[in-house]
Computed example of a mutant assay.
Amino acid sequence: MKGGIYTDQKCSVCGHNLKDDGKKAVRCPLHPQQVATSFRVHFDRVKRRFKSYPEAQRFLTGLRYKTDEDTFDAREYSSKKPLSFANLASSWLTVKEDTVKKSSYNNLHNYMMKAIDAWGHRNIKEIGFADIEDFFILHRKKLSSKTLSNMRSALHDFFNWLVKREVISKIPNFPVIKVQLAYRQIIGKETQQAILEEIYRIAPFKVWLGIKWLCTYIAIRPGELVQIREQDIDTENRYIYIHHSKTGETKPVPILDEDIELYKQTGPSFPRSYFFRHDTGKGGISQGQEYGDKYFYKWWKKACKNIEIEGVDLYGGTRHSSAVALRKHFSPEQIKQGTMHQTNKAFERYFRIGSDDIRSIYQQASDSAKTVTHIQKTKI
């Protein structure tokens, strides 16, 4: 039979090796009264020490049983814990750190740390649907449905990676996460223009220009815009190239002649320099340092406060508001092309039918209801 129970001890009488009798002890074949008091089990690549023969025998029997049912995996018994969830999650994060954007990696790291807190060094093969469902139940009161959905996608991607590396044979079932997305507060074009004028009055020129571009080029997100470099603005062909898009692909965005002229007012610079950068250094910020992800929003909030506008964030007040306003001039499909959404689901959440459109529908229903039908009564 595969594997066996051994000892490092020898017979104190003749010096021979002690051998497993297969029943009760590891003893000397010539002097049966000489028995071992410490034991080790060898089975394939598995080696484990025991202080009693019954413990060693039960362990060996278990390994043989797993072999018979074709579930034996030597990695489960390694002291390095190669099948530990925590160890595998750390390895996956190392891979992701070199393949995704920093902001995306930070989110993945956050999700996996929550999972490591829940499962620690538990064997990855033991984590199934019930464990994953309980994990999301634990967090559903603390996190939004959108965050839970993103966390589900990350964990599913992690388990898919394990299948590709042949660590596990299949991905466990995952619970369904229903996403309930809140709509952002939007504003009309007049209010948007008033905020832009206030930003022009109080903020650096490039801040105003960047927020103006967010209002105009609805394909660009704030986090994408702050990462463009001088060389990404093609004045000859009239494009801004977004290399750090949400999808990870380069996104060429056509721009207007008027914005080419505004760009030229900022003066020449090194091609690799960030376009949106600080011209002076103060308050812990170095001269030439690129704008942070929240820098536009900082000035947007300040301008809104100055002219007493509340509840409108930068994303809703620029990209979303401009897209809804364009409904008066273009079809939803045309606007979708302008936003460069790749899926209808994302666009449907992003674009809402305006109130005027709904009123038109209700008005038509009201006009149709004005036709009175008289029912003739007959005597029976």
Rank of each mutant, 00 (worst) to 15 (best):
H31P: 10
S38H: 04
S78D: 10
E258A: 08
Y111D: 00
T7M: 10
R40T: 12
M112V: 08
W92F: 10
G317Q: 05
A303F: 14
T343R: 07
M151W: 09
Y297A: 11
I361Q: 07
Q334Y: 12
T280Y: 03
A89I: 02
V95S: 14
L93I: 04
D70S: 07
A74N: 13
K246P: 07
V253P: 06
R229P: 02
N173E: 11
F174I: 04
Q34H: 04
K24S: 06
K24T: 15
L138C: 11
V324K: 00
I177G: 01
I171E: 05
D21S: 09
E224W: 14
K80Y: 08
G4P: 01
I335P: 03
T7C: 15
R122K: 01
K23F: 15
R40M: 06
Y315K: 14
F59E: 00
Y53L: 06
P332T: 13
I255P: 00
R359H: 13
K189E: 10
H341N: 13
C215A: 14
E308A: 12
D20W: 13
G210K: 04
F39G: 08
V163N: 00
K251T: 02
D356H: 15
T266P: 05
Y183A: 14
A182M: 15
F129P: 00
L326W: 03
Q265N: 14
D21C: 13
F72H: 06
Y6R: 14
Q334M: 14
S286A: 05
D357G: 11
D157V: 08
N160V: 11
D20Y: 10
A89V: 01
N107R: 05
S144Y: 09
V167T: 12
R27T: 07
I177H: 02
S12A: 09
Q376F: 01
L155T: 07
P252R: 09
M1C: 11
C215E: 08
A118L: 14
R27Y: 08
Q34W: 06
K101I: 11
T216I: 09
L162K: 03
A56F: 04
